[in-house]
Amino acid sequence: MTRAFLGLGTNLGDRLGHLVTAVAAIEDAVAVSGVYETDPVGGPDQGRYLNVVVELDTRRSARELLAQGQALEADAGRVREVRWGPRTLDVDVLWVDGETVDEPDLEVPHPRMFERAFVMVPLAELAPDLAGGWAGDHDGVRRLGDWQELVARGLEAGS
């Protein structure tokens, strides 16, 4: 089994609902970070995101994790019209222990993960060894609460 991490984000529709549905479908998930509300990075003017990082204990390759992430995005009704635009669900393969991929449609480790607070802050909860004392900017990142707690209460950020 291999340790892997996926980053999930959403800023359209029932944000928490999209995350709950996606996490429930990840069979080899072993932990979920707290839920963070974050400012969008790049792209057009858009609403704030909810973000989590999911830890997996898996036998799947990075390519197989990408396929699952794309299927989860499709199930959430994601439409790819504008690069870095608003989305119902975004799933990124962040890290797979012992695996490096450098292909046009997949790079692992994720090439920008170490630059993004919306990835590194929740990742540090699950894998401080990977976060490495990340000292980047935390502006625009607000922890809403523990995954289990928020799911149990069914809260949507901002309501």
Rank of each mutant, 00 (worst) to 15 (best):
D139M: 03
L150K: 04
V41W: 13
D57L: 14
G85A: 12
T100N: 08
W84D: 13
A22C: 14
W95Q: 02
G133P: 10
G43S: 13
L155C: 02
D146I: 05
E27V: 13
A74M: 13
R143E: 00
L155P: 03
V54M: 11
V141Y: 02
L65D: 08
L89F: 05
D39R: 09
D75M: 13
L126K: 06
D75R: 15
Y49K: 03
R116Q: 12
E107G: 07
E73R: 09
P109C: 01
V52F: 01
P128Q: 12
W147D: 02
F118I: 01
R142S: 09
G98V: 06
R142Y: 06
A25E: 14
L155N: 00
V91P: 05
R142W: 06
V54T: 10
R63A: 14
Q46T: 04
H138V: 13
N51P: 05
H110C: 09
V23R: 09
F114T: 15
R112H: 09
V79G: 10
L126M: 12
F114A: 15
D102I: 04
H110Y: 05
W84C: 07
R83S: 13
A22P: 08
L72W: 02
A31L: 05
E156S: 14
V52H: 01
E73L: 10
A152F: 04
A31F: 00
S33N: 11
E64V: 10
G77F: 04
V23N: 08
P111E: 10
R63Y: 11
V35R: 02
G145W: 02
E64S: 14
Q70I: 09
P40D: 08
E99D: 13
M113D: 02
E103F: 09
A124M: 07
D39Y: 00
V35A: 07
A74F: 12
E73A: 12
A62S: 09
A124N: 05
E37P: 02
D39S: 11
R87P: 06
